[in-house]
Amino acid sequence: MLNRKITPGQLALIFLLARIMHTMLYRFDSFASGTPLMAGQLLSTAAEAVLCVPAAVFFTKFPGAKIFEGGLPARAVSVFEAAYFTVIAGGTVALFAEFLQNKFSGTVFPAAAIVILCAAAAYCAGGGLEGIARAAAVVFWLFAALFAVTAVLSEGKPDTLNLLPFDGESAKAAAEYFVESLSSAWWIPMLAALSESLRSGAAKAAAGFLILKLAIIETLLLLITLILWRYVGVLGYPILALGAYAKSDFVQRFDAINMLVWTVNCAIVCGAYVFIAARPFKKPKAGAIAMSAAAAVFGLWQYRRGLRFNEPWLIAFKLFGIFVLGTLLPLLGLIIRHSKNKKEAYAE
């Protein structure tokens, strides 16, 4: 595995692709759309900005450093980290397989999709973080182009009557979406895990990601509200729904191009998760194979059980990981380093 360092921009793009992947697989079951969701996303971004502060400060102050230098705490953290990102990777491929099954029923064998995507993720992880980051940049621009084409070709007419004022019921919907959105903020533990491979500027990566994410997701939610309204619940997947209301039949294989980009994105994003999960292994390539196999097993189990992204225990598990790995441990690391520095200063 290559250990060349990446830039803050590259790291922000990896986070962004991971978030876009999650948004793509997010299903609107409750026919919810409108201002509550937009408010929930705004609140979630504000909360994420607060939660990422310890990791951003730690890795900006100590670029390339580890939170725990070694010993049992470091091993325990890396084992939990490996388990956490294996679950995230497995969940992502399981939801992607469910998406394929829902929308391309009869043409895809979901179990095969899970296994192939995990194998591709192992290959990506084995190539190292720099390779993942470079591929992520290509996929990001492809996404941007697809998004622009879809917006231009959209047949929907924006209806501003759908932008409703905020009331008591909106607050409840906003709170629910806030929790769901915050539970998908595993970019914060990713920041803590991947900042060791960052040249410098962890805070820049976090800020860049948060600004781009807010702009992209809020734009998406605004378009859904103005153009699709409650119909988004019929089509389920929001990005797909927006694409489905665009007259793109003159572009031969437009849907295939979309699926190609989404599939590549799934492999790259899961590659980043497997890369983190494989860190406790001494032989990184073997670790990547082992952890992607574990992700495949979890993904197959999740798919067979029909578990959704918003299962209460999964939300609790993801939030726990975000708080512990992304906020609490970097904060602990900062406190330890601070007291160590103080002791050294006193000793001098």
Binding site: G127, G131, R134, A135, V138, L260, V264, A267
Partner: peptide, 15 residues
């Protein structure tokens, strides 16, 4: 980039 190229080539051929 090789792996990305391989995935893109495979997907183009299969889609």
């Amino acid at each position: 980039m090789r792996f990305a190229a391989a995935i893109i080539a495979a997907a183009l051929l299969l889609s």
